[in-house]
């Protein structure tokens, strides 16, 4: 029997699936992304709760980064809608900061660390506004937050992988956004950098911001994040880490790629 709600919807023509809640900082609906004629993300719905720290978790090649990139309009999607703070993406770009994968750019590019951070202030600076001392100080402060203030005048090619990642995070901080989207921020970085980055992300949460990161290290999910989205092409599960990050869900996400013994060692939800 159809529920009362469904019948109501049928009678007055209202849609059953609600539009993304206005207070959600980031919601994707019916999103499918394909690569080479095969879906890498299929029909994913996800609504991030306000002021959450979300880990997007799944096996390699399972579409985590593609989901993020498609949501941001960097790669095309076959279908889907994105709402950011209740508005379509194009209207809400100002409130988003994005940290791409470190390997996505050419680090031999002729520029300095401080210039990269200033790129994050493009919306403020526009085409022609001069870079004033206040801008420079803001950029330096963002570098200081990630512990890179001493490197402001370095050529970016001279940085280590971890330092490059921190510079990218400083650039995102300079954007002054409300929603931070990070693509594998901890991939291939040293322990000091990982600590520096997670401290910054936690301070962002304390400032009532929302952080969503593609994350590959299952061992740290419970320590770093409060929400989790498990994907393997389609959404397997999402919700608070405490109830969703279960052995059963991980098994469903990773299939045979994850040994049971490994799961046993993880800090999992008690469910």
């Amino acid at each position: 029997m159809p529920s009362a709600e469904v019948r109501l919807a049928a009678e007055d023509g209202r849609a059953m699936r609600p539009a993304a809640p206005v207070d959600s900082p980031f919601a994707v609906q019916e999103t499918t992304v394909s690569y080479g004629g095969k879906p890498v993300v299929f029909n994913v719905d996800f609504v991030a709760p306000p002021n959450s720290m979300v880990a997007i978790v799944g096996p390699n090649g399972a579409g985590k980064s593609s989901l993020l990139k498609a949501a941001l309009g960097i790669v095309p999607s076959v279908s889907g809608r994105v709402t950011v703070f209740g508005e379509p993406l194009a209207k809400a770009r100002r409130r988003i900061a994005y940290v791409p994968q470190r390997a996505s750019v050419d680090w031999d590019f002729p520029t300095r660390v401080i210039d990269v951070v200033l790129m994050g202030m493009y919306r403020e600076l526009g085409l022609l506004k001069l870079v004033r001392r206040a801008h420079r100080e803001h950029a330096t402060a963002c570098l200081a937050r990630v512990g890179m203030a001493d490197f402001a005048d370095r050529q970016i090619g001279q940085l280590s992988g971890g330092q490059q990642q921190r510079v990218f995070l400083a650039r995102a901080l300079a954007q002054g956004a409300d929603l931070y989207l990070l693509d594998e921020p901890f991939a291939g970085v040293d322990a000091a950098t990982e600590k520096a980055i997670i401290d910054v992300l936690k301070s962002l949460k304390a400032e009532r911001k929302t952080v969503i990161a593609v994350h590959h290290d299952l061992a740290t999910v419970a320590d770093y994040f409060d929400h989790v989205l498990l994907v393997n092409v389609r959404k397997i599960a999402d919700g608070p880490v405490a109830t969703t990050f279960t052995g059963e869900n991980l098994q469903a996400t990773y299939g045979g790629r994850l040994a049971t013994a490994h799961i046993d060692q993880l800090k999992l939800a008690s469910a």
């Binding site: 499918t32 092409v233 389609r234 059963e248 469903a252």
Partner: peptide
């Protein structure tokens, strides 16, 4: 996906 640990089966899922 829960039953078969085998990559060749679970890995075939692409939504279509």
């Amino acid at each position: 996906r829960r039953v078969y640990r085998d990559e060749t089966i679970a890995g075939r899922y692409d939504g279509l």
